[in-house]
Write a protein that binds this DNA or RNA. Sequence first.
DNA 1: TGATTAATTGAACGTTCATTCAACAATTAT
DNA 2: ATAATTGTTGAATGAACGTTCAATTAATCA
Lengths: 198, 198
Amino acid sequence: MARPQQFDREVVLQKAMQLFWQQGYAATSMSELIAAMDMRPGSIYSAFENKQALLLEVLDYYSQQGHAQVCLVLDEAKSSREAFARLLASMVHEMTCETPAKGCLIVNMLLELSNVNEEAGAHLRRHLQATKDLFRQALVKADEAGELRPGQNPDVAAVFLLGTVYSLRVMGRAAASQEEMRILCDQSIHHVFLNQQD
Amino acid sequence: MARPQQFDREVVLQKAMQLFWQQGYAATSMSELIAAMDMRPGSIYSAFENKQALLLEVLDYYSQQGHAQVCLVLDEAKSSREAFARLLASMVHEMTCETPAKGCLIVNMLLELSNVNEEAGAHLRRHLQATKDLFRQALVKADEAGELRPGQNPDVAAVFLLGTVYSLRVMGRAAASQEEMRILCDQSIHHVFLNQQD
DNA sequence: TGATTAATTGAACGTTCATTCAACAATTAT
DNA sequence: ATAATTGTTGAATGAACGTTCAATTAATCA
């Protein structure tokens, strides 16, 4: 028995996410958010509390989507090597299909905010830890299936592959070429996994 | 025949650098710079033009110091393997000796600014390209000395090792452990270089 | 010593920022 | 219809931002 919301929460969250992703947190003003979300100040503040809370909800939304994407790719491939190769390749595509590249919202915000915004920093580190756990989980199976190179183990490989992801995220913002990124991915995959014919 | 400057340009640049490094560009206000540099607004503006120009000079200063440090380490070690191992180890130390870790000014600023500050972005990409060139140059010698693993070459290895540096920079801000960083470094060095006994 | 030059000072400027709120609109329940 | 409830609106708010500038200070030179 009241007036219904005119906006779709997920749609306006995506609009806000695009801006934060492209420009960063501090460089995105409420005026720009108001324009992009097509909402008036009062509506935004009644729906999201304030700019900080809006950011946190955007981060959670991105995080959830990211993890779903990772799980999907890791689960449907027929080997761990192929799974991680596809995951890295999709990131290379993501880092190069737009100019200028937006990079990764999480890594961008980690480097912009982790020292000046404790709450955001905690969200971001939690996400990265969860991603590492997903990697590790997939690599335990890979190890049991004998897919890992001698000297590798799930813990080491998870650190190494997450590091490769970080590299790609930075290279994206550095405007590195697709070729360089592919080289890095190939090297990393080759370092962790046995060749398929083995 | 005029009043001499009261401040040492390098000293106040370092003060400004510390703030930008710790907090980022947007999160560092002129008020904070005024306090840290112990200069009044007019002095800062007459010496550095404005906040943007101050940043660019800080970036150039950091860049110059960074390259000097890289050259030093790469030149004085008795093998390329040891040179890069020491370089990465010093970065691990840099990423973990302070809490919260400041990371790397260049990578921090790249992820905060490259999409919203064209001039800063250009400076940052130029620095990263120069670093890659330094790496490549050292790796050409390593290749000639037969230090590289089969399948490696200076171009590929430079991309890979610069990627490792990016990983460390992000891990620093993610509050990763020294142990994780050491694992990543060991893996990368082992991937690129032959074992010393070979 | 007085003139000249340059550096320093700090109050003040206009702008933009994130945020608030009273008035208004749209829906449901009675 | 009317009351009750909630969402929307947009002008207004105070604070903080980067920046400016007239006045002052400190040095050199004639």
